[in-house]
Each structure stands twice: as C-alpha cells, then as structure tokens.
C-alpha cells in the first residue's frame, strides 16, 4: 500500500448525496478477476451524460473528490475504491461515509475525510467557482486546507500511523499468530466446521 502523508490537488465537486457503490462502479465491472483497470468503469453510467461533472474538462486531472453525505452506501465491493484510485483520486471528502466503503478505502490508502456538511458545502462552492483552487489534505496534521479555510478532521492514531507508514493489515496481523493460535484452543468444541 502506498503511504499517505499529505496531498495537494484540485477537486471535483459531486453535488449528490447517497452516492452508492453501484454508481461508483456498476456491477457489470465486478466480473473481472483483476485488481487494476477499473478507472474506465468509474461512474460509467453517469459519465454517459456529457453534462456530468467528471466530463467537465475544467476538472480533468483533479485528485480529490468532494461529495454529498452518505458516500459509498450499498454493496461491499472494494472495486469502488480501486476505480476511484485508478482514476487518480487520492482522497474523498464527504460529511458521512458508509462503513464498509470507509474500511475498504482505508485498506487501500484512499483517504476518506469526514468533515461537517457545512464545510464540505463551503469547499464545494469554492471549487465550483474556481476549478483551479487547490486543496491540501494533511494527514500528519489531520486537517484540510483551502484558500481561506482550515478544517480539522478526526482519524484515530493507529489508522493514521498505518496509513502514513503504508502498512497493510494482513502483514501486521501475521505477527499475532501466537495469540490467534492461543484463542483457537479456547473455542467451544461444538462450533461448526464446514467439513
């Protein structure tokens, strides 16, 4: 996983709430068995509309997605995160994220930044008024900065450390094999197996 410390880039304003993972990456794309190449499917139904904000050349190359509340609801598909990253996004800013999406994003180094709805709105207004505005997402200092705006965000120490080091969970947990084996000896014998 690529480490995340701080990122500065332009942002795309997506003024929609309840952006579900079926919209982020439609299910037809889920048939693929690879982990890469999902960028072309990102918001593919909405991108069929020439007026969709991701088709606006003014926002080409933007690396931060500004979205309405309840981003990433629905299916557990991690392909949604892979698609956003493959398209070039490094962070998503929203007032609220669905739990599974948030976990998937944190597992891949795509930073989900939760800010109050009013702050997301203020950032969205700015980016709509001037697409060249740059936003900085600073994980080290746990804050988002834009011209005339500084907003702190919450993230727990452990997750922040893991992201800044670029460590994935599997590697960390593999160090706990003894504890796992010890726990297994305490499990009741009547628990089912699939054998």
């Amino acid at each position: 996983m690529e480490a995340f410390t701080t990122h500065t880039g332009r942002a795309v304003p997506l003024r929609r709430s309840d952006v579900d993972t079926d919209q982020i990456i439609p299910s037809d794309w889920l048939k693929r068995i690879e982990r890469t190449g999902f960028g072309a499917g990102l918001f593919s139904e909405w991108r069929a509309d020439p007026g969709f904000v991701l088709n606006d050349p003014a926002y080409a190359g933007a690396t931060i997605l500004l979205a309405g509340p309840d981003f990433g609801t629905g299916s557990s598909r991690e392909h949604a995160v892979w698609a956003l990253q493959d398209h070039g996004f490094k962070a998503v800013i929203s007032a609220r994220f669905a739990d599974i999406f948030r976990g998937n994003a944190l597992g891949n180094g795509l930073l989900p930044v939760e800010l109050p709805a009013g702050t997301v709105e203020a950032l969205t207004d700015r980016v709509e008024a001037d697409p060249t505005v740059e936003i900085t997402v600073d994980l080290d200092r746990r804050e988002v900065r834009a011209p005339g705006l500084v907003a702190g965000f919450d993230i727990d120490d452990f997750t922040r450390w893991r992201l800044m080091e670029g460590l994935d969970d599997v590697g960390l947990t593999m160090r706990q094999q003894e504890a796992i084996a010890a726990f297994e000896t305490t499990r009741p014998a009547w628990l089912p197996t699939t054998r």
């Binding site: 557990s76 598909r77 991690e78 599974i100 998937n104 969970d169 599997v170 960390l172 947990t173 796992i180």
Partner: peptide, 17 residues
C-alpha cells in the same frame, strides 16, 4: 459484510482488526 482486502485478511489469519 467486508471488502476484498478483508476477505484476504480472513483467509490468511481467520481474524479481522
């Protein structure tokens, strides 16, 4: 429900953080 990285995590360790 979990994502694919967590599926990998459970396959490898039978646990989840």
């Amino acid at each position: 429900g979990i994502g694919t990285s967590q599926v990998e995590h459970v396959l490898a360790t039978q646990t989840l953080p």
